[in-house]
């Protein structure tokens, strides 16, 4: 089990959160806090970079959904970039691959000109 680290940087369409480690029952609140602390303005695109995400359980999925609720309240968009295979499989099992916008990597996600979901 790995600890969770979240680093934030700014890209053209909006903030990018790089999520490293395990996103689970213990660490999911950290993602919620990080998303709540963002200053989002309408039309921004929040990108969650999951390239280094090692594990994501139902609490992690829940935190992703909470992030989606937050950005939608701000009239912003959310994109998941570089979703690891096992998490992509879980998202597909729970049907959330139809809900989240998925991209191969961050550059593909931030290249989108329209941030609207």
């Amino acid at each position: 089990m790995s600890p969770l680290t979240i680093t934030t940087r700014d890209a053209a369409p909006g903030p990018v959160l790089e999520i490293t480690g395990d996103l689970d029952y213990m660490t999911a609140p950290e993602l919620r806090t990080a998303v709540a602390g963002l200053s989002l303005t309408a039309g921004h695109l929040l990108v969650l970079d999951l390239a280094a995400l090692e594990f994501c359980d139902s609490s992690g999925i829940s935190a992703l959904l909470a992030a989606r609720n937050v950005v939608m309240e701000h009239d912003c968009g959310l994109a998941l970039a570089a979703v690891p295979a096992n998490t992509a499989r879980i998202l597909s099992i729970v049907g959330l691959d139809q809900v989240f916008t998925l991209h191969a990597d961050v550059s593909a996600a931030t290249a989108r000109t329209s941030a609207r979901h």
Binding site: I61, L65, V94, G95, L96, V99
Partner: peptide, 13 residues
């Protein structure tokens, strides 16, 4: 396939 989490979206498949 495609069965969605229950309670997330107003319309779920």
């Amino acid at each position: 396939p495609g069965g969605m989490l229950i309670g997330v979206l107003p319309q779920a498949h």
